[in-house]
Design a protein around this nucleic acid. Structure first.
Lengths: 247, 247
DNA sequence: ACCTGAAGTTAGCCTCTCCTAACTTTTAAG
DNA sequence: CTTAAAAGTTAGGAGAGGCTAACTTCAGGT
């Protein structure tokens, strides 16, 4: 009864229905698996133009057959668009849910680092489990406590409460920086704890100031705090920087 | 290989195997359901002499048939003792796991209250979901941050790292306090948020000092901070106090 | 000692998410 | 333009954890 009334009210007020969809608490509660699928589709979509089921299967560590099955279910729920043998994409509602989960994840990563003394190679795994179970109240509480931060400890943007992705500075791959140029590390696009751990042992973390001193086919040579390091391509490819004129 | 070596080492050193069992990280990872069953058996066992499957079914909001099924599984895993048509009890390993989950729960409740401004009627539900997914590191971090507390916001004891239940003061049911006697509230044995919410609106919370001013069959009359209230039996029965000679 | 109702069990079924194996469609290389 | 490899689908099944309905066992009151 109240539900019907709400719809009538919405119609009278000419409000877009979509604002309802974007409020996660109004959506049917999804399983953790389903949230993971949506989140992964979103992340792949940021990198690739098109999302293949194979990629999805690799990232989620399941077999392609399982992905096909889940895509049918998510389509049924109106969260993805998909036809057999075609690529997948999120609907607006699906994307909203993905962003909500991503917001939880990244807020949690920052919270763990700032308030519970986690190092940046430990936060991902813990946030991966917590992101599905925290309430809106928990989300609001930590966001408030941290002053509504815009980026997590890896430099990844944290979706706002309205599920917008905040602007990031214009970034360059560190591998593309010219010799003798200065730069500030702004984003490290991996969650591999060995790599993160190694980077921080070299004093390389978000906001570190570096100078590129040379490049060869082994990797890229940089100076940080008076120290010289060779950053192999296998690691350098994850590091994104903001160019700086001086240092 | 290393595993075999560890066992050999244990044998040489004559260490009891059981110390391994008591370390949860060495136990096979249980499902959230299984953890909930163990926790509930433990809590029922604290109150009743014997744990019936019916009680368990009620507490877990599940049908008795499901409990029978799970008991078989937990027995298989060596976590409970049980024969058809007989009562259930935890084994030492089962109890250790129950205490570990309870420790997570109660530490989380206190953490939410102290650090994220949750009121005591909101903490239980959130902790109920988080308790299963936090790591040992998370547990250690919040325990450390709070100075290894012994009791949660409802006055329930928090099992120590070694899974011992800390001593609590000798408590009396508030309904058993004599007229004109003083007492301090030390434990409120319910998680019902309506009741908790109502109590805190009356300034009744852990460590509140009260005086019993009268009793009749509607309930018990008390004074708190110059205010007089009637506490109905339906609520008073959850409140446990420490007797105080003066106030 | 018996009977009845409560407590507990069993069998069979459901949904969820994953799997394998065999198949079909798409794509890209020659 | 053909064709083989890659990508995706289908069918059938596993196991976890619920359920209902029908059954068995137990325990208390007369």
């Amino acid at each position: 009864m109240y539900i019907i009334l709400s719809f009538v009210l919405l119609y009278i007020l000419h409000l877009p229905m979509s604002i309802l969809n974007y409020n996660r608490s109004n959506n049917p509660r999804l399983s953790e698996s389903q949230e993971d699928y949506l989140k992964e589709i979103f992340k792949l979509n940021e990198v690739n133009t098109t999302v293949s089921l194979q990629d999805l299967a690799d990232r989620l560590k399941v077999k392609p057959a399982s992905v096909t099955g889940m895509m049918k279910k998510l389509k049924q729920l109106g969260l993805v668009t998909y036809e057999p043998y075609k690529e997948v994409a999120l609907t607006d509602v699906g994307e909203a849910i993905a962003l909500e989960v991503l917001r939880h994840h990244r807020l949690l990563e920052l919270y763990l680092a700032r308030h519970l003394n986690y190092s940046w190679d430990e936060i991902h795994e813990e946030a991966e489990r917590l992101e599905h179970v925290i309430s809106e109240k928990f989300e609001a509480a930590i966001a408030e406590l941290m002053g509504h931060p815009t980026h997590d400890p890896h430099g990844d943007p944290i979706p706002t409460i309205d599920l917008e992705i905040p602007d990031s500075p214009n970034l360059t791959a560190v591998t593309a920086v010219k010799e003798n140029n200065h730069a500030i590390i702004r984003r490290v696009m991996t969650q591999d704890s060995d790599i993160l751990n190694m980077l921080s042992r070299l004093d390389l973390t978000i906001h570190s100031k570096i100078t590129v001193t040379g490049k060869d086919n082994a990797g890229i040579r940089i100076r940080v705090n008076e120290n010289q390091y060779l950053l192999p391509h296998s690691i350098a490819r994850f590091v994104w920087v903001e160019l700086a004129s001086n240092i």
